[in-house]
Simulated scan of single mutants.
Amino acid sequence: MSDPYLPQDDIVKLRDTAVEQGLADPMLRRLLFEGVLPKYRGSLPMLPAPGQQVHSDLNEMNRVERLIDGTVPLAVWLRNSVGQLSDAAARDVFQDALDRVVRDAAGEPDVAPDVPTGETKEEIVFRDDTVPFEFLGGGALAGTSVARVKVLPYAGGALLQPLALPHTGTGWLIAPGLLVTNHHVVNARKRTAVERPVVDPADLRLQALGSRSRFDYLAEDEGDAGATPELSAAELLAWDEELDYAVLRLADAPPRPFLRVATEPLTVTPDVPVAVNIIQHPGGEPKRIALRNNLVFEADETDLRYFTDTRGGSSGSPVLTDDWTVVALHRGTRRVSDVSFQGKSTAFVNVGTQLSALMRHLRENSPQVHAEITAAQSALSRPPQPQEV
Score class of each variant (00 low, 15 high):
Glu123His: 08
Asn187Cys: 03
Ser337Leu: 12
Met61Thr: 04
Ser366Tyr: 14
Asp203Glu: 05
Gln385Trp: 09
Ser366Phe: 13
Arg66Pro: 05
Gln53Cys: 02
His183Cys: 06
Ala155Glu: 13
His184Lys: 10
Asp9Arg: 15
Phe215Trp: 12
Arg288Leu: 12
Glu241Trp: 01
Leu32Tyr: 01
Pro282Asp: 08
Asp322Val: 09
Leu47Ser: 07
Ala379Tyr: 06
Pro153Val: 02
Leu329Met: 02
Ala225Gln: 07
Thr71Val: 14
Ile174Gly: 10
Arg360Asn: 12
Asn350Arg: 01
Leu136Asn: 08
Leu355Glu: 09
Leu67His: 06
Val125Met: 09
Ala371Ile: 00
Pro73Phe: 09
Glu119Pro: 08
Val272Glu: 11
Ser211Arg: 03
Phe126Trp: 13
Gln377Leu: 08
Leu78Gly: 08
Glu230Phe: 05
Val115Gly: 03
Gln21Met: 12
Arg103Gln: 14
Leu23Ala: 09
Ala147Thr: 03
Glu298Pro: 00
Pro166Leu: 06
Thr269Pro: 00
Pro109Glu: 01
Pro255Trp: 01
Leu44Ile: 15
Ile279Asn: 04
Phe258Ile: 00
Thr374Val: 07
Val339Ser: 05
Val125Cys: 01
Leu152Gln: 09
Leu355Val: 15
Val151Gly: 03
Asp244Ala: 04
Pro109Leu: 07
Ile373Thr: 02
Leu141Ala: 12
Asp69His: 05
Val76Leu: 06
Pro255Leu: 03
Ala88Tyr: 07
Pro45Arg: 04
Asp338Tyr: 11
Glu222Gly: 00
Thr263Leu: 15
Val199Tyr: 07
Val351Ala: 12
His281Leu: 04
Ser315Leu: 05
Arg335Trp: 06
His55Trp: 11
